[in-house]
Design a protein around this nucleic acid. Sequence first.
DNA 1: GGCTGGCCCTGTACGC
DNA 2: TGCGTACAGGGCCAGC
Length: 274
Amino acid sequence: MHHRRYGDPVPELPEVETVRRGLEPRLVGRRLVEAWSHPSAKFSAAPEAVGRVVDAVGRRGKYLLVELDDRLTLVIHLGMTGQLRVAPPADADPHDRAWWDLDDGNRFSFRDIRRFGRIAVVGDDRSALPTLAALGPEPFDPSFTAEHLWRSLRASRARLKTQLLSQRPVAGVGNIYADEALWLAGVNPAARSISRPAAARLRDAIVAVLDAGVANGGTTLRDYRTVDGGTGDNQHHLACYGRAGEPCERCGTELRRRTIDARTTTWCPRCQRR
DNA sequence: GGCTGGCCCTGTACGC
DNA sequence: TGCGTACAGGGCCAGC
């Protein structure tokens, strides 16, 4: 019954938002007094935030935006296996990639087994993070309308799932929630065009699955953790992702699996016809 | 200028 | 049992 052996859990919008909510009360108002970073260029910017005070903890898509004084932003992307904690300093963990000591004695630490995460300190210019700079609207923002999604998807000939993962039509959707939303909307992930009504269904489905993900505290399949080390609950509410070989909850047809642009994709061949 | 594919990393599953 | 190997994936970038 374990068909989910492929793939790893990837922090997407609901997971990053859950982490953001956990960090906010622990970081706002604190000064970063010391830092350490792994030598990789992906993490070496961490010490640039030393001396700054945290004004706010925000999020855009899957990017965590720790707003500092002096118009600086500490940008953290969790990659695939990134975890953030705020706790008293502890013994070094071999997977620690950066940490910042706070003026209240706690340590804000970033642990990332596979090192797909990234840390940057930026001002107004975010061109060093091109995906962030070109990010589509937040899914819960009023500007994310059916009309916007339809026009955005119509402007490209890439497969619909590829477009969703590009972060340009909408911010924050990754492999899990893309499969869930496409299934819920009855849209084929490999198609290269979409009708207006289908785009409207897809828009509603994206909002619905992300909203449920946030409400459930994110999806923990392996590595994702909340700031206090807890797990999410949304893994018990997935209808499509990781269920290849199981019957579709809607029509009973066996869900299929294929690869789209190097990403594992699960879909229902009946509900999601081209 | 859009799109495709390679790359980064490491734990895990799998096969002999 | 133990070892070698394939595999997965978000974002970035080179090259068509």
